[in-house]
């Protein structure tokens, strides 16, 4: 035995090490299980429904006769929400971040930032009712044929919902641009707006883009508000004033109903979930990649 050999086994160390490893394992196992179940059920769904019908069919009627399994109406519904909410959240979120990072005094920053964080903490079901009882009546004042459940109202509240995230991530991106760059721009006679629009925002562009992608990804996965406000009518339309159904809202509908487990209708749940999961995963990977590129610039 050498002089430096451990005099005793440190059991506390060993147990804690195992405990931490187990905790890390839980999240990995969960992910693997979810992907596994999705894959198995989706595969068995495609045993009964042709892949082409699923991806190119224009009608989604899995619960009623005559049955149809084209996911396009659900995808279109989700896209309406994504585009609409992006129109709200991206410009306002970026403008908000520009204000916070470039124009606001310390004092107003300390007031606005916490308010934004409160906005992010409001339960999404509250947003859903806000859409139904406030935004939709408002839209009806302006436009003629607005249905009770409609994509526009849901898109607006989803936009408000993701706005704090966009603002906060864009704020981080803008603030990571070194102050020396701003000073350089001011020193050649630039105005605040020129400094912001032509130096700071371009320098932060990849961070801003990553924020946008994450926002879109969240809008795609958003469930409660769209279930409440956008309706449950799978509808292949580009008219935001009509009732639609998103992928997530469909999944809520099936989960809440009395669809027997194991049947084809039940399996649609997993097929739709797979599509949803693939899209959001791709978006998040894209955001990650862009983010990493952006971190390289100023480290």
């Amino acid at each position: 035995m050498t002089a430096l050999a451990a005099s005793r086994t440190r059991w506390g160390e060993v147990i804690l090490r195992q405990l931490f490893f187990f905790c890390a394992l839980i999240s990995v196992l969960t992910t693997i299980t979810v992907i596994g179940i999705l894959a198995v059920e989706t595969f068995s769904f495609f045993q009964e429904v042709a892949v082409t019908e699923f991806f190119f069919g224009t009608e989604w009627r899995p619960l009623l006769e005559p049955k149809a399994y084209g996911i396009l109406p659900l995808l279109a519904g989700t896209m309406l929400i994504v585009v609409g909410s992006s129109l709200v959240a991206l410009p306002i979120g970026l403008a908000c971040a520009v204000y916070l990072s470039e124009y606001a005094s310390q004092r107003s920053r300390h007031i606005v930032k916490p308010i934004l964080e409160i906005l992010a903490g409001i339960p999404t079901v509250v947003y859903g009712y806000f859409a139904l009882t406030f935004v939709t009546p408002g839209l009806r004042q302006v436009f003629d044929d607005v249905q009770i459940f409609n994509a526009a109202s849901a898109a607006i509240v989803v936009g408000i919902m993701v706005l704090p995230m966009v603002a906060s991530l864009c704020d981080d991106a803008l603030r990571s641009v070194p102050g020396s760059l701003r000073e350089g721009a001011y020193s050649v006679g630039a105005t605040s707006f020129e400094v912001t629009a032509r130096v700071v925002v371009p320098a932060a562009l990849s961070g801003i883009f990553a924020a946008f992608v994450l926002a879109v990804s969240r809008a795609i996965g958003e469930t409660m508000a769209v279930t409440l406000a956008a309706g449950a009518t799978p509808n292949l339309t580009l008219n935001p004033l009509e009732s639609i159904q998103t992928m997530t809202a469909y999944m809520v509908q099936v989960s809440l109903g009395d669809t027997p487990s194991g049947g084809l209708a039940y399996k649609t749940l997993f097929a739709v979930a797979s599509v949803l999961f693939t899209i959001t995963l791709a978006m998040n990977l894209l955001a990650n990649k862009v983010m990493r590129k952006f971190q390289e610039v100023y480290d």
Partner: peptide
């Protein structure tokens, strides 16, 4: 102040070129 800086330019402690 923009007019001031048009006439009085500045070079800083650390080089700060724009990422352009």
């Amino acid at each position: 102040p923009v007019e001031v800086r048009l006439r009085i330019g500045m070079v800083f402690q650390r080089p700060n070129p724009f990422p352009k």
